[in-house]
Design a protein around this nucleic acid. Sequence first.
RNA 1: GCGCGGAUGGCGGAACCGGUAGACGCGCGGGACUUAGGAUCCCGUGGGGCAACCCAUCCGAGUUCGAGUCUCGGUCCGCGCACCA
Length: 814
Amino acid sequence: MTDTTSAPADASPGLLDAYDAGRVEAKWRRTWEERGDYRTNLDSPQRPFYNLAMFPYPSAEGLHVGHMLPYSGVDIYGRWRRLHGDDVFEPMGFDAFGIHSENYALKIGEHPAVVMKRAVSNFRDGQLKMIGAMFDWDHQVNTADPSYYRWTQWLFLRFFEAGLVEWRDGAVLWCPSCLTVLANEQVEHGRCERCDSVVETRWLRQWWLKITRYAQEMLDALDTLDWSESTKLMQRNWIGRREGARISFDLEGCERPDVAVFTTRPDTLFGATFVVIAADHPQLEEFVPAERRGELNAWRNRLPGPQAEPDFSVGIDLGSTAIHPLTGARLPVWSAPYVLYDYGTGAIMAVPGHDERDHAFATEHGLPIVEVISGGDAVATAYAGEGTLVNSGELDGMPSDQARKRIVEMLENTHRGQATITYRLRDWLISRQRYWGPPIPIIHCPTDGQVAVPDEDLPVLLPELADFRPTGTGVSPLATVEDWVNVTCPKCGGPARRETDVSDTFLDSSWYFLRYPSTDFDAVAFDRERTNRWLPVDMYIGGNEHAVRHLLYSRFVMRGLHGMGLVNDPEPFAKFRAHGMIVKDGAKMSKSRGNVVNPDEYIEKYGADTFRLYLMFLGPYTAGGDFRDEGIVGISRFLQRVWRGTQRATVADADDDEERERRRHRLVGGVDADIAELHYNTAIAQLMEFARELDHESAAGRGRLVDAETLLLCLAPFAPHITEELWQRTGHDGSVHAPGGWPEHDPDLAARVEVEVAVQVNGKLRATMTVPAGTGEDDLRQRALELPRIVELLGEAEPRKVVAVVDRIVNVVV
RNA sequence: GCGCGGAUGGCGGAACCGGUAGACGCGCGGGACUUAGGAUCCCGUGGGGCAACCCAUCCGAGUUCGAGUCUCGGUCCGCGCACCA
């Protein structure tokens, strides 16, 4: 610390040197690295504990304090587990492939490989190593390194072989600015989540991973996971299981004989007044009379892309007729973009009386609106609630929830429909028409179709390309590299062409936790024994912005591998907690907003320990908060107290007294419980109280050595350097971070002997009294009523009731 | 619109199962040491009142001996989803 050269006013003359964070921290970081303290024995751990932080994607902007909060919190948890005797594996790596990295490279006009190399070394050596985390750098990964993406490609091929990959045409979401297709998860309100451009629809043949196959399994397994409830809820909503019915309508006047619709409200079937087919339905032509196909296609070609706000004025009467399965009524068949092709069956029965969208559409186009559930004004506004059936023939008067089942039965008996389940989740589109990613390892052969690149030919190296700009034509810039594209088919040896798309960045990060323990294996993606020993991850901490993408994709990949028998566990992360986000002036930190706070200057000025503690003390770890540095001096004072208090403690352990012992056990138990729940802010508050008392006692020559030792051990996860230095200075040989060193604590010994009990009269606090802990209710009542203050207040009045709660309160009611 | 959270001193935040609201820290006030200090240390600090006491956890009801905590109804803020039938 550069600005605290003067000794404390009450220091024993000339004994203590000032706390110099810079010197202490550099010394211990060097020592730990030289000794290899944090290299994990991956092959023969007694109690393996995989402690994982979401890895960053390197950028030239460097890490800001918004990154340091999660990493500090992860490291505290890991160091705490280590002190409890676990063999903690805490790796770190870099998500260096992807559009974000490529876009930045484009912006500054350098090749992404060059930019990333520089950014990674700055992240790692300039920043991550400075915070004193116990990252095991022997096992780092970099998703853009051939030694990593070779296995990303290998993984793709395993899914390909297992039938979990499809190459198919589809209406895809296209970003006109990023010039690539996007996954469903990357589009928000019809806009690209990265650049905010309005997304367009394109028809392209693309690679999809069949994540929907696991929708139900992933939904069910959520109950077995120890994850933040908010995260689980988001996944549940994203998977979006809906129970309903599939109902078949016969068609007249077109090639197609019938159409199936999906509805969650079969009870409203009698209110269906028309049928709507999705405008992007690939076989839409089959729903119109043959002579109207030209008209239909002309209409379809004029349709806009997906809209943020649905436009119910857009729609076309197809001219064919649907027959109501129960009433035989003849309903018009329409097509409109407000009906989605890739949800349900791509067609709906429109019930304008009980669905707002159908109501809006019916109103726009003058279609009939019928009320079939009483309870609201169906004709005027659409009533979506429950009620009693009306205008529903024999079912009139039946409650809607019963009718739901009854109508499905009726349909099942006549084979016109059945109960069914639909999910909101879509398959994962992984093709990207960009440069900076792993080439999809497929060869297109005119005779053999889509052929996997043989494993022994992996990696399919990303060719070095001077002009890597996206083309916007629906193909990747890789297509221009003729001598790379043209190959011979591995099956027939004839001429063939490579797939030129690269895969989505989220595929890179969907399995990186599998690679960390096995980075020293060149011949396999992940060693079986290592994997089964270390997976699933014991504690995973990251941002909730990845709740439905990274976390869902990773679960899918793991489940796929599990299905192939390649891993033992179907889930990647046994425990997940979302950390809070640090904002600045109410907004997320970003260079464009100009509100980025660089941690480097704080680390340089105050030291990493102070900075870590300060971030953790700002507020609850899982809540985050607004970054202001006004309070950092409080942490600085706290560490100086620790510096003095522990070094001046001289009283031997043999002279320990019972009250101090109780205080110590309370500290250990309290900090232990707080860290377990990630309540770092309150753990630090307890440490501050303890340090202040020790400092005072030490200044008076009564500081206990055992107190100093306990304080250092409990503080060690938070402030690894200063505690290590003080551990040595207070006469210890090994490291304060040695596995299993956490002080034992006995809840009985932590219990208070005397407690202060509040005495209320009619619920108002009027006095307190100190009594032995555990004093019984009757005893409490008697003591309270004898208190002079209470006697005075009661006067002549006779208490109607006296409530007593042991160790807490007495309430006298008059 | 639907679904989740949240609202506590000047500020960040504590408060286990309903039991002394405001731990810890910042800031502020006073003092000590100082040539000086924005360094460090000590004491005080929700508001009002001389005091007894009164008022205080977004607002309004309710349950209870007792409510920041539970119930109902609002207001505001944040997050997720939003044509998903």
